[in-house]
Simulated scan of single mutants.
Amino acid sequence: MKIGVLALQGAFYEHRKMIEQLGAECIEIRQLSDLTSNRFDGLMLPGGESTVQGKLLAELGITEPLRNLINAGTPVLATCAGLILLAEEIEGGEKPYLGTLPVAVKRNAFGRQLGSFEYTGSVGDLKDFKMTFIRAPIITAGHSDEVQTTAVFEDKIVAVKYRNQIGLAFHPELDQDTRIHEEFLELCKSFSLNK
Rank of each mutant, 00 (worst) to 15 (best):
A58I: 14
G115C: 11
N68Y: 08
G142C: 06
P172L: 10
E118S: 13
Q9V: 11
A24P: 04
A169N: 10
P65Q: 07
K106A: 08
M1W: 03
Q176A: 13
H171C: 09
I19P: 00
G167Y: 02
G47Q: 06
R163C: 06
E49C: 03
H181R: 10
L8I: 08
L32F: 12
I3Y: 04
G115S: 12
L60N: 01
Q113A: 14
E64M: 14
L83R: 05
Y13P: 00
H143M: 12
N164A: 05
I90R: 04
I29M: 01
A141W: 07
I3N: 02
T132H: 08
V105D: 02
C26D: 05
K95E: 13
C188Y: 07
E186V: 14
T51M: 03
D125H: 12
L6T: 04
R179E: 12
V76M: 07
L60S: 01
E183T: 09
E183I: 09
L187W: 08
N194M: 10
A24L: 06
K161Q: 15
E88Q: 15
T132F: 08
L86H: 02
T150S: 04
M18N: 08
D155Y: 05
G121Y: 05
T63N: 03
L35Q: 01
I62T: 04
G82M: 08
E173W: 09
F170A: 02
A11L: 12
A78F: 09
R30G: 12
T51P: 00
A151R: 01
L126P: 05
N38L: 08
R179D: 09
S192L: 04
L168W: 08
F153Q: 10
I27N: 01
A141C: 05
S50D: 00
L98W: 05
P172F: 12
S50N: 00
E59V: 06
A141V: 07
G54A: 02
I19T: 04
G61H: 10
N164G: 02
N194R: 13
R107D: 09
C188R: 03
S116R: 11
D41Y: 03
S33C: 10
A24Q: 07
L185S: 10
D177E: 15
M44Q: 08
E14S: 14
L185T: 13
L45Y: 07
S50M: 00
D125G: 08
L22E: 02
Q21F: 13
H15L: 11
G10A: 13
G4H: 00
E183K: 14
Q176H: 14
C26R: 01
K95H: 03
N71Y: 11
P96N: 10
E182N: 11
F133M: 08
E146L: 13
K127A: 15
I3R: 00
N71F: 10
L98E: 07
V152K: 06
V158E: 02
Q165N: 06
D155N: 15
L45F: 13
L174P: 05
G61P: 06
R135L: 12
M18R: 09
T178K: 11
K2G: 03
N68G: 12
T36M: 09
